[in-house]
Design a protein around this nucleic acid. Structure first.
Lengths: 340, 340
DNA sequence: GCACGGTGCGGTACCGGTTCCGTACCAGGA
DNA sequence: TCCTGGTACGGAACCGGTACCGCACCGTGC
């Protein structure tokens, strides 16, 4: 069976192809109701589906948004990607997801691939935005918004959360339980990442410690941002001679690894080790003990990112448009910190 | 900065646009080395990137594979999607992932969207293939392969694993530990799904029980295929008056929920409750206790699916082409079953 | 009764590539 | 010298839509 094209529809409806086009996109010119109906009947009868590629070609637009994340298998990114898809779907757009696996070449690869597919915008939960890439993005005139990523350049459009403040909240809370100090499990920065929100979590820890006049030296440890590597690192740290009384992890996924290591070593959480994370992934409520963490409103952030990318700025009451949208983060107290 | 097109390159290189095309795709006609070099220099100088949309339009092909999964946030599907991406990348293709969230309309939505984008093939870890959809797929002449999905129609192309046999392996193993019976946590089938591999896991359980002449009545429980819902169901089941001595879960994600519920209820695994799952997701090695489960070779399966979708059949030694590729599944013994 | 403005639609140029067809050019053989 | 065959490239049709331009037809106002 050959593919049905607009020509077939036009022929059956007895109109020109232009009218078919006007009917399927409701514009740009009006169509008389009777004609419209004939066309719609023909579309239905033939089972016509417009060819997206041809539409994109002709209109120089698409209904696509490209999303680049480090690794969608990690709960935080998976949930974020899902939220973006939902938000995009609400506005009739589809999202294309690319996993960079934390390697810069793959980020650029996806960025180029998405641009070549004429996405109308890009949302980056990633670090691909160097000057070089920016010029290319510009040439294809796509819009970019950084999500969960601190903007570096003055004209970056971004949706961020209060990472430093959120981390401070968590660390202060841990401190209030009377621990002499709180250790921190930060990320491994093989390639120093600019604008990395997770490193802001470490900064928040540092500030909270400083407020309390507690030294931070030798209390910062590092592991990749996932549970498996964090588990390995924690195994060593917790079995060592300087086991901390409390630990703040820069992501929940790491915290999950720490919890697992503690169990392995028969260290009771929170009695012998208090733990807090960051992100409030869905699983944080189902760990044992449930994880105290810092939550951000992913749904709202995803929606804001989609709005920014599609509308070039967020509508705000004062009729101006904002280019950076900051969301608050809040502490979610469960049991791993020692409460209850 | 305006976008660089093939015309700009041709002008700078002093050739026709056709030659530019021949150079960038190495064919279909040969180009003299000197000319080729001039064109390549021009491409580099201008930073030219071919427009994928226009290429797709003109050539009626793309380098895209559409992948539809129920929910990539679930570890099994996430890992499978990742494996497919890897396999596709090895062959220079990109994959588009759609999450159906287990609803049929969304499957069809993505299917149509992907066809409209002229994907060269579709890999379904899903149930979208009804006759209606098949006709559409045919019209757009894309190829489809079912992955991890039992084929229903005689001409379906599929990559499957031995679900029934694998489940039998796990249940037999549980039985060998001397339990009087093994309960089963299957899936909820609101919409009866044809070809659902997970329901084959239940079938495997049934057969293993029958082999051992143990009745199955009242020993099959149901929960959606994820840890959160399984946790809720398990909480009730394990706290009830008929707590089973052992339970086989149709997915690892469910098993993780069961493990969590057992801990909550202070039921020791495996001493008071033996547990086994299916899939061998990465996390299965990191549960407490580590989960005994059934593994399949996701990497090989993904690669086979990509080969099938791109080559219309798998090359086999005997020069024939197979249309259904069956992979074995094997038992991975860890500690949740009671071993060691 | 005629000029005029508005509405509804057909014709068609164009988006940026691919690829067929044909031609110009050159070398070699008759 | 002329014809033949092969190679290297230019020209242009085409993919399936979008959207501009302009014409035909109608109703209205003077």
């Amino acid at each position: 069976m050959a593919k049905v094209t607009r020509d077939d529809v036009a022929r059956l409806a007895g109109t020109s192809t232009a009218v078919v086009s006007y009917v399927i996109n409701n514009g740009p010119r009006p169509v008389a109701p009777a004609t419209r109906e004939r066309v719609q009947a023909a579309i239905k009868e033939l089972g016509y589906r417009p060819d997206r590629v041809a539409q994109a070609m002709a209109s120089r637009r698409t209904e696509l948004i490209g999303l680049i994340v480090p690794d969608a298998r990690q709960p935080f990114f998976g949930e974020m990607a899902h939220a973006v898809e939902q938000a995009a779907a609400e506005r009739g757009k589809m999202v294309l997801v690319g996993n960079s696996d934390y390697v810069a070449e793959r980020e650029v690869h996806y960025l180029r691939a998405f641009l070549g597919m004429r996405v109308s915008g890009l949302i980056l939960v990633s670090h691909a935005l160097n000057d070089n890439a920016a010029a290319e993005i510009d040439a294809w005139d796509a819009r970019v918004v950084l999500l969960h990523e601190r903007p570096e350049a003055i004209d970056d459009v971004a949706v961020v959360t209060d990472d430093i403040g959120g981390a401070q909240l968590a660390v202060r809370h841990l401190l209030e339980h009377g621990h002499p100090y709180v250790a921190c499990l930060g990320g491994v920065a093989e390639t120093p990442l600019v604008g990395d929100p997770v490193s802001d979590h470490v900064e928040g820890w540092r500030r909270a410690m400083q407020e309390a006049r507690i030294p931070t030296e030798g209390r910062l440890f590092e592991a990749p941002y996932n549970r498996y590597d964090a588990y390995q690192v924690a195994l060593e740290l917790l079995a060592g001679p300087h086991r901390p009384p409390a630990i703040f992890c820069s992501t929940d996924d790491q915290a999950i690894g720490v919890l697992r290591a503690a169990r392995e070593l028969r260290i009771e959480v929170p009695e012998e080790l208090a733990v807090a994370g960051f992100d409030d992934v869905k699983e944080a409520a189902l760990t044992d003990p449930p994880l105290t963490t810092v939550a951000t409103d992913r749904t709202a952030m995803a929606r804001a990112a989609v709005d920014l990318v599609l509308d070039d700025g967020l509508r705000v009451p004062g009729s101006r448009r904002e280019r950076v949208k900051l969301f608050p983060s809040r502490l979610v107290v469960r049991r791993s910190c020692g409460c209850r």
